[in-house]
Nucleic acid binder design. Structure first.
Length: 324
DNA sequence: CATATTTGACCCGC
DNA sequence: GCGGGTCAAATATG
């Protein structure tokens, strides 16, 4: 049987080959072929991510300091068991859940802030638990349609410990001075798991489509190959790093094809815009969004966040925020 | 007055 | 029917 490392290497190699193929076709402006290849790359990368996660699944705990002396523990295995028991309704959300255990100071009735603003919308006594569970939603749910939620419950064994379950991903931008990627990766709340499972594809749209290298340790070392991937194994990745799929010189014939809402620099204060999960299906992928409407010649970065576990060949992301 | 929290009622899956 | 999750009116807070 193939080891997970071999499988991972094989998948990454396949992704690399696909990326090369994409580059060739981009140069020839074969848009339809590019679309198909791009989707294959996404799928292949997701598989690699999942393989990496599976191979490191034994890491039940991943502790790190949280600035204020807090101790955060990841409980991957325990949480997987919980997820299996979840109801159908809950399972829909389970695609983007993570659990943290936060130790706080004696006497504290709420866990410390996590960088996001939350609005409590319910509290419930849980059968067999000593402490009630509190339900929170992102404050920006109304204004920005952010679907992130969390559940907070004091641990039975240790009242200094809070079990926090995060449901969904933040699509809001409460820190406009930061770019989208720094908001995500410097935010202690954003779970490490989510960070490791996020694939960011940065695209620059100028007169032509340009997929830009950013943050990757591997710049284009081979001048004939425009795509490069970080060689850092996922389970060794720094929380502040991401897996970037990138290119510095891919060109094709897209011109003036972005909705004007994409271009508004005022909304997020940067060129980075989120395309997040699960609301609208973009069945024909990137090009469908690109061909929506509008003209502009300035640069823009698009981020594609691909959540862990979504192995569909379809790419799904939320475009609704652009049309508010 | 706007926003956040509390809490009983309601909904839904099992 | 039970238990967990959500709603929404009442209340609190700044």
């Amino acid at each position: 049987m193939q080891s997970s490392t071999d499988m991972l290497l094989s998948q990454l190699n396949q992704t690399y080959e696909l990326a090369k193929k994409l580059n060739e076709n981009l140069n020839l402006s074969r848009i339809e072929i590019c679309r198909t290849i791009a989707r294959e790359i996404i799928c292949s990368t997701q598989k690699a991510i999942c393989t990496a996660m599976t191979s490191s699944a034994g890491e039940a705990e991943l502790a790190f300091s949280n600035g204020g002396g807090l101790h955060v523990e990841r409980l991957n295995n325990e949480f997987r068991d919980k997820e299996q028991k979840m109801s159908k309704r809950r399972k829909i959300l389970a695609n983007t859940t993570s659990q943290e255990r936060v130790r706080t100071d004696p006497g504290a009735e709420v866990p410390p802030g996590d960088g996001h603003s939350w609005r409590k919308y319910g509290q419930k006594d849980i059968l067999g638990a000593k402490h009630p569970r509190s339900y929170y939603r992102c404050t920006h749910r109304k204004s920005q349609g952010c679907s992130a939620m969390k559940q907070v419950q004091k641990s039975d064994e240790n009242p200094l410990i809070f079990d926090i379950t995060y449901l969904g991903t933040h699509t809001c931008f409460s820190l406009p001075q930061q770019t989208a990627s720094t908001t995500l990766f410097h935010n202690p709340q954003q779970s490490l798991l989510d960070q490791q499972n996020s694939l960011f594809l940065h695209l620059d749209f100028q007169d032509n489509l340009e997929v830009k290298t950013e943050g990757s340790e591997l710049e284009n070392q081979d001048p004939t190959t425009s795509f490069s991937f970080s060689s850092t194994p996922i389970n060794e990745m720094n929380p502040d790093s991401a897996l970037f799929c990138s290119s510095s010189s891919v060109e094709c014939g897209y011109e003036g094809i972005l909705p004007s809402a994409f271009m508004s620099p005022t909304r997020y204060g940067s060129n980075l815009y989120p395309l997040c999960e699960r609301h609208n299906k973009a069945d024909s992928g990137l090009a469908e969004i690109l061909s929506a409407s509008g003209t502009d010649s300035s640069a823009i970065d698009l981020e594609f966040m691909l959540e862990h576990g979504e192995m569909d060949t379809e790419v799904t992301f939320d475009t609704s925020i652009f049309f508010n």
